[in-house]
């Protein structure tokens, strides 16, 4: 088995990398200028966090791979992001719903990692938690604004929630990697974050006048890399195009 710590750091870094790339797809085409800037800023924070997580992953692995190598030289089956992060942008509402469902988890996860027994992980979490606090404030407000908005925006947000909810459960699934790290006090048990997540999300959805789907059925396979959705491969062909066509290109 691969070093659980390396696996875990790839999960953290791939979540922020893949979501960052998705969010950056809005750059220049968002509904209004302020949203365009906000989305680009969010993507920038996430890519900064990616450099820290994947940089540390490469260091732990000790095979000379840095953050760029990990980002651009792995194929779909080596990615460890949750399926939620790779889901396509859809309309602006779907993008913001995906962001909120992720941010709400991300904040709890980082708060827990601040107390990690690994000093490097705790330092990255301490840095990232400040940024993510801003992310969830904005994505939560937007979900409320659009959910409790016009008939059209409400209906689109409900559709986005129904479409994305089956990807929420994977955030809280625990496996051997999580158990190994939680036993050493490096990372929280994913299941331990669920109650607080539900409380926060239920409150926002209620204010947004949206209905949480009855079923908590969860698609899985992203964080283990066993089965990504078809969307990730398409995204990577674009994201990795330059390094695939011109390996080691720099400028």
């Amino acid at each position: 088995m691969t070093d659980p710590l390396f696996e875990y750091l790839c999960r953290m870094g791939d979540n922020t990398l893949v979501l960052s790339h998705r969010v950056s797809e809005w750059c220049g085409v968002a509904p209004v200028l302020e949203e365009d800037i906000a989305l680009a800023n969010t993507a920038l924070d996430l890519i900064g966090q990616t450099q820290l997580w994947l940089g540390l992953a490469g260091e732990i692995e000790g095979k000379g791979r840095d953050a760029d190598t990990l980002a651009f030289r792995r194929d779909v089956w080596d990615f460890r992001n949750v399926l939620l992060a790779e889901q396509p942008n859809g309309d602006f509402g779907q993008t913001m719903m995906r962001q909120y469902l992720f941010d709400a988890w991300h904040l709890l996860q980082l708060k827990a990692l601040k107390g990690s027994s690994n000093a490097q992980i705790s330092a990255i979490a301490e840095k990232a938690v400040k940024e993510v606090t801003y992310h969830v404030e904005r994505s939560g407000d937007t979900v409320i604004g659009l959910g409790d908005g016009t008939e059209e925006s409400h209906q689109r947000m409900q559709k986005a929630l129904d479409r994305l909810w089956p990807y929420v459960g994977e955030l809280f699934v625990s496996d051997a990697v999580d158990q190994a790290l939680s036993a050493k006090g490096i990372a929280p048990e994913p299941t331990s974050l669920r109650e607080e997540y539900d409380t926060a999300v239920n409150a926002v959805l209620a204010e947004a006048t949206l209905t949480r789907p009855d079923s908590d059925f969860a698609h899985q396979g992203g964080k283990t890399g066993v089965r990504h959705t078809e969307h990730l491969g398409h995204m990577l062909t674009e994201m990795q195009w330059l390094q695939r066509a011109y390996p080691d290109a720099t400028w």
């Binding site: 302020e34 800037i37 906000a38 800023n41 969010t42 924070d45 801003y134 404030e137």
Partner: peptide
């Protein structure tokens, strides 16, 4: 406030 984000990561509009 117009937006929580601005022209650089450290600023809001």
């Amino acid at each position: 406030r117009i937006s929580q984000f601005g022209s650089t990561p450290c600023k809001a509009q």
